[in-house]
Amino acid sequence: MDETTVISCTVNGEAVEEIVPARLNLVDFLREKLDLTGSHVGCEHGVCGACTVRLDGVIVRGCLTLAAQVNGATIETIEGVTATGEVADLQEAFLARNAAQCGFCTPGMVMSAAELLTVNPDAGRAEIRDFLSGNYCRCTGYQAIIDAVETTLAGRKNGGSTT
């Protein structure tokens, strides 16, 4: 049987067609084939959240999804959501609050937090902590990240959102 497969998908708004090894996972595909190195590889067993990307509108672990599976799908990465400005307010809050230190977890953290902003706009601190509990950060101790998300939620409620 063939150990490669052809995929057509939309990545950050661009049509992509590639021949990929069947075993290639989504985050390696994005990083190695498309040079979208903003998504990071931290554990490759689905625990750390550094590879979090959006697949058909919802966040997934890039290391637990095969590139072969995204045929026909829409993928968004940190590069994509940055370019559209969708999370500009969240990123601004991260910067202002120093919610990123080494920055390795940050793209995954931003992708996860972006989903929280839409699925639970009324989240309080405990719910933010809960929602982000699958994204590991060794540097910040999390408080600055929680603050940044809280600030963004408040900003959107007050009509500060650009989305």
């Binding site: 049987m1 069947a22 075993r23 996972n25 490759e44 067993h45 689905g46 672990r61 290391c63 637990l64 999804t65 095969l66 072969a68 599976q69």
Partner: peptide, 21 residues
């Protein structure tokens, strides 16, 4: 969903010839 199988494959704890999605 692959949320277990993929981790197992990444660690090569399983080595199937074929994945049927």
């Amino acid at each position: 969903g692959g949320q277990s199988l993929m981790a197992m494959l990444n660690l090569r704890l399983d080595a199937p010839e074929l994945l049927i999605d």
